[in-house]
Write a protein that binds this DNA or RNA. Structure first.
Lengths: 182, 182
DNA sequence: GCTGCCATGTAAGACGTTACATGATTAA
DNA sequence: TTAATCATGTAACGTCTTACATGGCAGC
């Protein structure tokens, strides 16, 4: 089952906040939620149909402009219930975070391999760029305490992502610095 | 293509260190490498066959005891070359680390939801347990500087995993503590 | 003798990515 | 008018998990 249909719950969770189109849901994965899960629209649209057949969500047609039809999905009572069940379930598995760079590092046997400095530098740049982006988001969305409380989950997720990236970048920088000592 | 066959390179990388059976490779994912990738034997055995057909690896039969045949795989020159190619390639994608717990948190709207403290506590326990295990590994394998240099990739991976878990646990503890202030 | 680990495989099905396909709306 | 974005879908294919299946070896 590969991952036991977590996407289903993400969709239910998003619809629990407000009614959304499939397109909106797909977009959510390019924002905050994308830090901790990913999904493409080609996975989302079929699943929305299945969830509707299962009675967990419904949709209303909404017309934009002349002809463009949107399907605006919302939770049914059954969907609401399954969402709550999921939230109340214990979460016991710590999924192994797949990280290709770390794997490469693992296979660079020699601590003095000339490949190491450019590899570390490249990753450092990537993580610093991401960190900067996340901090910007944080400043833009959660500058005041009121908004932090109003969107608590949002806020926590961003905070955690920032700390993770900061830690990653620090580790890379430290490892690089140690190489340069010699 | 889901993940563009990273497992192939992990196998090449492991065989680059020394000859291994499929069983050994599967076991590697329960050790250090499991922190950053996962794979089951049912994925590994067929891939080994495909890699051999492709000329990247070969195997020698080794008999244990009376009849038990092992296939001990090792890299060919072509496999060695592809491994090096992979290591030299830039690594540009920062894979979204899928984390079910964080997702749940995201959907707990209310900062005062009574669900939060037990959820946070449960995760804290999980991450602290993992952290303890990782530290133990570190102490056991890399107590002296010589072994750190001799197995540099190994060492870095463990160090990074420890820092990641420490950061995660700290964040959870901090978030919990803030809840208890009120 | 039995338990746990070593060792290798296949099959079914779910999950995920990339590409193919189409068309409307909005703002510069 | 044209580019970017909104909006929805399907097809093909690759990856990953779970379960099925089998048998040997080592130590207690």
């Amino acid at each position: 089952m590969a991952q036991k249909n977590k996407l289903k719950y993400i969709i239910l969770g998003l619809l629990g906040e407000r009614a959304l189109t499939g397109y909106d849901i797909a977009k959510a994965f390019t924002a905050d939620i994308g830090e901790f899960w990913s999904a493409n629209h080609s996975q989302i649209y079929p699943l929305l149909k299945r969830l509707e057949t299962a009675g967990l969500i419904t949709h209303q047609l909404q017309v934009s402009g002349e002809k463009l039809e949107k399907k605006v999905y919302s939770l049914t009572a059954a969907g609401q219930a399954q969402l709550q069940d999921w939230l109340h379930e214990p979460t016991r598995e710590l999924t192994a975070s797949k990280d290709e760079f770390i794997l490469k590092l693992y296979f660079v046997q020699n601590a003095n391999d000339p490949l190491l400095p450019p590899m570390l530098t490249e990753q450092l740049n990537l993580h610093q760029a991401k960190l900067a982006h996340l901090k910007q988001q944080m400043a833009r969305k959660f500058s005041d305490q009121a908004s932090q409380i109003a969107n608590y989950g949002h806020f926590l997720i961003l905070q955690h992502a920032i700390e993770r990236e900061q830690g990653y970048a620090d580790w890379l920088a430290r490892t690089l610095a140690q190489k340069n000592e010699h």
